[in-house]
Each structure stands twice: as structure tokens, then as C-alpha cells.
């Protein structure tokens, strides 16, 4: 390739193949996904602190602002637009029912962290839920509705039994 600051990558996003996309190597995954139209991934700080940009890479939540798009070459990405497993549908219902968001800017990141919680398939106390989501900043809610929603989800999904 002529320009060393660009490279061509492929990945699977929400179970669809995205092949041979040329990106600037400096571009982080969050911007890359947003440029592709996955606007549900939000950027709140671009320094790893707020968690709004969390996406799943090979099934693990990561900060998409702290990962280069090129690092995701060949990987499986899930954005909020693709968070459609039956468990996550229950989680989303519980978020709606508990009013666990106001402006919604933090929500996709919160859902990614909730995905991790659900995935671990064990019981959580409210305090443990608070610990898990302590890397996700929400300025609107008092966090309580989010804790309620996660707790409610775990009960409904019946994890850890």
C-alpha cells in the first residue's frame, strides 16, 4: 500500500461481513463504527473513562475509543444495533420498564456491561452490580434505575441457578 497511514481491514459486525475497508490507521474503532453508520456507539470522552463507547469484540466488552480499527481486523464486533439475543431483549425490556435511561447517551455502553454481567452467569448483589457498572458514566439517572433494571434482568433471565 502506498500510504503507510492507511490500511485495509475486514471484520464481522453484527453477523455481517464488512470486507476490504480502507481505514486510517489512527482511527479508533468507535469512530470507524460510527462512520459505517453504527451510530448507537457513542463517544463521551475518548479517553476510556466514560464507557459510552463500549462494544463487544469477540464477545468481550471493550472501549471502542481505546482500540484502533485496525486492531479489530478479522474480529467479530457487536454494537448495540446487534445486541439481539433473547437474553439481551429481556435486558432491554427491563431497562425500558425501569426507566433506566433518560437521554440514552450512556445506554449502549451500559448494555454492553450488562451483557458481561449476564454472560458471567452468576448471582449479583446490588452492590456487585454497582461495582460492575462503575466504569459507565451516566449523568442523567441516579444510577438506581439502572441497577434496578440489571437486577430485574438477572431475575428474569434466571442466571446462576
Amino acid at each position: 500500500m502506498s500510504n503507510l497511514n492507511k490500511t485495509t481491514i475486514s471484520m464481522i459486525i453484527n453477523n455481517e461481513n464488512y470486507d476490504d475497508i480502507t481505514v486510517e490507521t489512527r482511527q479508533h474503532l468507535g469512530d470507524f463504527l460510527r462512520d459505517l453508520g453504527f451510530k448507537g456507539t457513542h463517544l463521551g470522552c475518548e479517553q476510556g473513562a466514560c464507557g459510552a463507547c463500549n462494544v463487544l469484540v469477540d464477545g468481550e466488552s471493550v472501549r471502542s475509543c481505546l482500540m484502533l480499527a485496525v486492531q479489530a481486523n478479522g474480529k467479530k464486533i457487536t454494537t448495540v444495533e446487534g445486541l439481539n439475543s433473547s437474553e439481551m431483549e429481556i435486558v432491554k425490556d427491563c431497562f425500558v420498564k425501569n426507566n433506566a435511561m433518560q437521554c440514552g447517551f450512556c445506554s449502549s455502553g451500559m448494555l454492553m456491561t450488562t451483557y458481561e454481567i449476564v454472560k458471567s452467569n452468576r448471582k449479583y448483589s446490588r452492590e456487585e452490580i454497582r461495582e460492575m457498572i462503575s466504569g459507565n458514566y451516566c449523568r442523567c439517572t441516579g444510577y438506581q434505575a439502572i441497577v434496578d433494571a440489571v437486577e430485574d434482568s438477572l431475575n428474569k433471565i434466571n442466571v446462576g441457578v
Partner: peptide, 25 residues
Amino acid sequence: LAGGQSLLPTLNMRLSNPSVLIDIG
């Protein structure tokens, strides 16, 4: 470039200016 969790914040804030990142991942 290892996990990038310390390096990328400094890059995003333009606090450093490397020529190339060698990904050892």
C-alpha cells in the same frame, strides 16, 4: 502497542506522536 488502554488515551489527547505502533497482540 499492547492493550492500548494507557497508550490510546495519550494518543487521543495528542500527548505523544509516535511514527509507528507495533502491535504485539
